[in-house]
Design a protein around this nucleic acid. Structure first.
Length: 558
RNA sequence: GGUCCCGUGGUCAAGCGGUUAAGACAUCGCCCUUUCACGGCGGUAACAUGGGUUCGAAUCCCGUCGGGAUCACCA
């Protein structure tokens, strides 16, 4: 068959040639070793935390090699497209500190760089030119079959084929159509897709090097995959080959779910006589489900799959990034310990150090990273971060703190400023209120039905202790005086006034100075856990302290 | 079902033929201490399984089991 003639017949309205495409986008003149990487999200609603993970790897590669990190919007599936999703993705990337150097820049039309357009729906001519070239060299052909309609139909058919115990092969009927048959179909106005004419042998393998997985053997591709849908937009495979060729991507970082279609991508490159980029197939971030099984983070079931979740929860960006970086290169935390003040971009990251196990997202570990990140914040930084967060995610809390900067800074300085070891109690801004509510509410908590005073001690003893202590407390006392008053009160209630005595013979005491402190703490803060009590009481002021003690006595006396 | 990927403590993980099998989170205990916390010290806890190869296997090979991915005119 005269393939050249076939190509012209099929694409008579399209003049752009494959050769011209290549000429239009010459090599980037970059220093040796500089990598060109890309993040290519599809605009389907929100940015997956896995994309942040992948984009971070991209950014790290570009940063360490002095290369370029660009963003391309993969919007060829108009059915799934969600409005503004591209902008959302760009904004999210930016808030995570992963702003691309080149490409899509957010507000629809705007782009940066000379290898565009960076939106696939506007690159149709290139895909067609490549497909046409493939037809003209006999490596692609038109397919007139009707496509399956929707995911349900596909699943149904797959189930049928599985039951028949046979592999689903796209040995296409249209592969051997004659020129005349094709011409006839065209005359009848039939629409067609373009398929790759695969030349692979399913019994043959070839060697392949993956930057993460290392050296592998891959089975040759035998699938006549679709290169151009009947509306002449490309599915992922062709779009990937065309765009990453024309934009001169040097290393493709993508999730492991792509690994099984790799052979078909490589066959397209080969058919075109092109060198493929390097590939790094990353593990997929998973979670433990109810049955104790690992599974990919899913958009439907798992709120944490959405990158916005972490912002809503009030995790500092750095906390998320450091946690992710530790997943990427697990020796990160050791490095961080030795380099507490450096930027994580200084960490000697290596693609080859990425493990190939799918990690389970561990919130405890994230929280630990986050506590450490926040422990490096100043009191002012904590205040402004909490305020900014609350303004959009917790309006009520925002109203409580917005005009109380001095108060808050003092509060966040307790156990944080001028101390040897910084208190690490906050892991995200969203929990600040629940940790410190007693500082912002005028303690009507004790009148709430579900509030129960619990110092772990006898009620009457507690009441008597508080009655006595109330008469002694003065907010003008120095810390030593304040403490001595509590200590001096101890013998009267048979509390040990130091822990050593108490430990020697706990049975001979009703409690210890620790219990005495605990009574006061719970009365003031309603909980057994708070920063340095002296400063807390001081901040609250004489009247509030007396009032809270009164309320507690009242409550306990009922 | 076919193909591919992956199995080291509860979780993340070092390990690359000879290790007392690191470290971190979590957990437990002790110390410090006016509580909680922070910090320090220590403990519990792992090579999925069965066969090989080898003087020697977590490490190499094969089988089994378990988990995951993929098999669209979706990305």
């Amino acid at each position: 068959m005269d393939y050249k003639k076939l190509a012209d017949l099929l694409f008579k309205d399209y003049d752009l040639t494959y050769e011209n495409c290549l000429k239009t986008f010459p090599d980037r003149s970059l220093p040796k070793g500089a990598e060109v990487v890309r993040i290519a999200p599809s605009p389907t609603g929100y940015l997956h935390i896995g994309s942040v993970y992948g984009a971070f790897i991209d950014k790290l590669i570009a940063y360490h090699s002095g290369g370029i990190f660009y963003m391309r919007l993969e919007d060829t599936d108009s059915k799934r497209e969600v409005e503004n999703a591209g902008d959302i993705a760009y904004d999210m990337l930016s808030t995570f500190g992963l702003k691309p150097d080149e490409g899509y820049t957010g507000d629809g039309k705007a782009q940066k760089g000379s290898y565009g357009d960076y939106v696939q729906s506007r690159r149709k001519k290139y895909y067609i030119a490549f497909a046409k070239h493939l037809v003209s060299i006999g490596r692609a052909y038109p397919c007139f079959c009707k496509s399956l309609d929707g995911i349900d139909e596909i699943k149904k058919r797959r189930q049928e084929e599985i039951e028949k115990t046979c592999d689903i092969e796209e040995k296409d009927k249209c592969r051997n159509l004659t020129f005349e048959q094709i011409e006839e179909n065209l005359k009848r106005g039939m629409s067609f897709a373009i398929r790759l004419k695969s030349m692979g042998d399913e019994n043959k393998v070839f060697k392949f090097y993956d930057e993460i997985k290392g050296e592998r053997e891959i089975r040759e591709n035998t699938k006549d995959i679709v290169l151009l849908k009947s509306d002449f937009t490309p599915p992922y495979a062709l779009a990937h080959v065309v765009d990453d060729t024309l934009m001169h991507t040097t290393i493709v970082v993508r999730g492991e779910e792509w690994y099984s279609s790799l052979a078909s991508h490589l066959e397209i490159f080969k058919a075109l006589g092109l060198n493929p980029p390097k590939y790094a197939h990353t593990p997929v971030v998973c979670k433990m489900d109810e049955n104790g099984n690992k599974r990919k983070l899913s958009k439907r079931k798992d709120p944490e799959a959405d990158a916005r979740f972490f912002i809503e929860q009030g995790y500092p960006i750095d906390s998320v990034m450091e946690y992710l970086l530790n997943l990427i290169n697990s020796d990160y935390e050791d490095w961080r310990k030795v380099n507490p003040d450096k930027s994580y971009y200084d960490f000697p990251f290596k693609v080859s150090k990425i493990g190939s196990n799918n990690p389970i997202f561990d919130f405890q570990k994230l929280n630990d990273f986050s506590k450490q990140v926040i422990s490096r914040f100043t009191a002012e930084q904590i205040f402004s971060s909490v305020k900014d967060w609350a303004e959009t995610y917790d309006k009520q809390f925002f109203d409580k703190i917005k005009d109380k900067k001095d108060f808050c800074v003092k509060l966040f300085s307790i156990d944080r400023v001028n101390v040897k070891n910084v208190r690490k109690d906050i892991s995200r801004w969203g929990e600040v209120y629940s940790l410190y509510d007693y500082m912002f509410d005028n303690l009507n908590l004790k009148t709430l039905p579900d509030y129960e005073f619990d110092s772990g001690l006898d009620k009457n003893l507690t009441i008597k202790f508080l009655q006595e202590y109330k008469t002694l407390y003065s907010s003008s006392d120095e810390k030593d005086t304040w403490f001595d008053k509590i200590r001096n009160l101890c013998p009267k209630f048979n509390f040990a006034s130091n822990m050593k005595d108490y430990k020697k013979s706990p049975d001979s005491f009703a409690g210890s100075i620790a219990d005495a402190s605990s009574i006061i703490r719970v009365a003031i803060t309603t909980r057994k856990n708070s920063p340095d009590l002296y400063y807390i009481m001081n901040l609250l002021g004489q009247d509030e302290i007396i009032s809270r003690i009164d309320k507690t006595i009242d409550l306990l006396s009922r």
